[in-house]
Computed example of a mutant assay.
Amino acid sequence: MDEISMLRETFDAPAPSPAAEQRARAALLHHIAPKPAKSKKIWWRVPIAVGVATAAAVAVAVVIDKPAEQKSPVVRANPTMKATKSLPYLKPVSAAQVLENAAWTAEQENWTDPKPTQFMYVESRQMRNPPSIESARPNGALVPGKAKYRTVQKWDRIDGQVQGEIRNGRLEVHKQGDNQSQWGFIPWSQIVKLTSSAQIDAFLEHPEGGLSQDPDAMAGQYVLPPEVKAAIYRYLAEQPGMRINPDAVNLDGRPAIGLGRIEEGYLSQELLFDKETYTLIGERLVAVADHVNRGDDGTSYTHKGDLFRQVIYRKMVIVDRPGQTAP
């Protein structure tokens, strides 16, 4: 009898599932031979104004039969929970590891495919300057002491043809084409195909309906199936320049990990993940270097640490009609 068999017999640990073995093998191969970095693509980014439901905590138990190369104990989810395995990295040290934890968390979410007549309801809290400052030219960073959070509530029908939003305390509902109302919307038939990095690449190169969008923006703007959300996080993990922001972030009373990449040499566009559950809880755009902005509307000065955008995701669910905020 070998040592592993003795340990299993002594501690009576259940054998890992085929899915767990496959995941461990893939993680090890990725560690030994990481994929080459892909060239960075720049795509149109849509402002995010949405919320994400918090994933339920998963109970875990330590498993004895861990690979020698593993730095931290392998854990397995409590069999009474939906999950069949645990967070891939107990103490992630890189952006790729945090994103893999986020992908795993997304995969644990319950999901029922929506009907074409149902709506995606997204709710967020956005840090915004007062209107008088927002309308000024040139525009700049959020002003400490003046910028305040505003709640944003939106409903988008699955087929993209109807949209609702709370404005001035009232629900407004519009149809595509009514009173010249038009908005971009990625077809649901396209969204459900995005279950791998290869399919996301294909979408970015040849988007259905001609509308392309940053995958990280999609994660914050659409109510996505778990496998699509997970694929987006894994896609981002493969992109060059993804890094962890070492600065601590406290978002809505919750400590968060900032992940992103540098844009225009001085701005860090970040997704914010809960430090415990690795659920996506927000987004921000922050300056990481001083910069002088010169444009047709004037010159403005950016200082390291200036915050341009901060969003807290509060809720993301499928509902039956505009105005409804819970299933």
Rank of each mutant, 00 (worst) to 15 (best):
M1P: 02
M1A: 13
D2L: 06
E3D: 02
M6G: 05
T10F: 15
A20P: 00
A24W: 04
L28D: 05
I32H: 04
P36W: 15
K40V: 06
W44R: 07
P47R: 05
A53G: 15
T54H: 08
D65I: 05
K66Y: 04
P67D: 10
K71T: 08
V75P: 00
A83Y: 06
L87Q: 06
L90D: 04
L90W: 02
Q97I: 07
E100T: 13
A102M: 09
E109H: 12
N110S: 09
W111A: 07
D113L: 15
T117Q: 13
T117I: 11
F119A: 00
V122F: 09
N129Q: 09
N129E: 03
S135G: 09
S135T: 10
G140E: 02
A147S: 11
Y149I: 01
W155H: 13
W155T: 08
D156F: 10
L171E: 12
E172P: 01
K175Q: 14
D178N: 13
D178T: 09
S181A: 13
W183I: 08
I191N: 09
T195P: 00
S196E: 12
Q199F: 13
L204T: 04
E205V: 09
G209R: 12
G209S: 09
Q213H: 04
Q213T: 02
Q213Y: 01
D214T: 07
A217N: 09
L224V: 03
A231H: 14
I232T: 04
I232K: 08
R234A: 13
E238G: 10
G253M: 11
E263L: 03
G265A: 10
Y266K: 02
L267V: 01
S268T: 02
E270I: 05
L271I: 04
Y278I: 08
T279E: 04
E283S: 15
D290F: 12
V292H: 01
D296W: 02
T302F: 00
G305S: 03
L307P: 00
V317R: 11
A326N: 13
